[in-house]
């Protein structure tokens, strides 16, 4: 166990935890955009920035990555921290002005758009938090989507921006997306799901007959786990 201070509160924590883990466990709110407990932290959004140390040695770090240590002094709401968060949010608001989720979060944090930043007109709500790419790679294990280009041109896409033949249509990327950028459509009868520009035929439950998962996904699971397809053709409510 180590002893540290967050916002003047003395806290005991287990070694190896991050500042974010410990803060949340102790009821201290730190905003995040790219964090998900199921994934390794990425440190890309910088919303969770906090200030550590004191005086001239004080510096801003990302709480999702920084490990707690004995005697660590953390300030989760200093002026510098507020400036970083404000800037990050204003930059993202200008990047994705159409995302309602972002606008709501900004409002909660009392951050207003910077009028000098011209709002982007490309309609993209993607803030490159990487949750979708990381989920597809590490949780689903498919790596159907990834990044392309760098800097201002960086974006999340399927290779060559064409429909991917390895995507299984599971929709995990869409459900983890914090800004509503990744869209998943289902046909009126429920037999087809469309995501990343590709249509997926849905499998109907062998018991209740409801469409419940893309066939490709079931084939993938069967291949990975060795469970025969027939057993997988049952939806979760009938199982």
């Amino acid at each position: 166990m180590v002893n540290l201070t967050i916002d003047n509160r003395k806290i005991q924590a287990e070694e190896g935890q991050t500042i974010l883990d410990v803060a949340r466990k102790n009821g201290i709110t730190i905003p995040t955009l790219c964090h998900n407990d199921a994934l390794e932290p990425s440190g890309s959004c910088r919303m969770c920035s906090v200030e550590i140390g004191e005086g001239a040695r004080a510096k801003v770090v990302t709480s999702c990555l920084y490990p707690v240590a004995e005697g660590l002094v953390v300030n989760s709401g200093s002026e510098r921290v507020k400036n970083v968060r404000r800037t990050v949010m204003q930059l993202l608001l200008a990047r994705s002005p159409e995302s309602e989720q972002l606008a709501r979060m900004a409002e909660d944090l009392g951050i207003h758009p910077e009028p000098r930043f011209k709002p982007s007109e490309d309609g993209s709500k993607c803030i490159l938090c990487r949750l979708c790419v990381r989920t597809c790679e590490t949780v689903v294990g498919v790596s159907a989507i990834g990044f392309s280009f760098r800097g201002p041109e960086k974006n999340v896409c399927t290779p060559f921006h064409e429909s991917s033949n390895i995507c299984i249509g599971c929709g995990a990327c869409a459900s983890v997306c914090p800004t509503g950028h990744i869209e998943m459509h289902v046909s009126p009868s429920g037999d087809v799901r469309t995501i990343w520009g590709r249509d997926f035929k849905m499998a109907a439950c062998s018991k209740c007959g409801l469409y419940f998962a893309p066939e490709d996904q079931l084939t993938y699971i069967s291949g990975r786990t060795g469970v025969p397809m027939e057993e997988l053709m049952v939806c979760s409510s009938c199982r």
Binding site: S143, F147, S148, S164
Partner: peptide, 12 residues
């Protein structure tokens, strides 16, 4: 190596 990673490196 997944094609998404190859494409990522090629465009990076």
């Amino acid at each position: 190596v997944p094609i998404s990673r190859v494409y990522e490196v090629a465009t990076f």
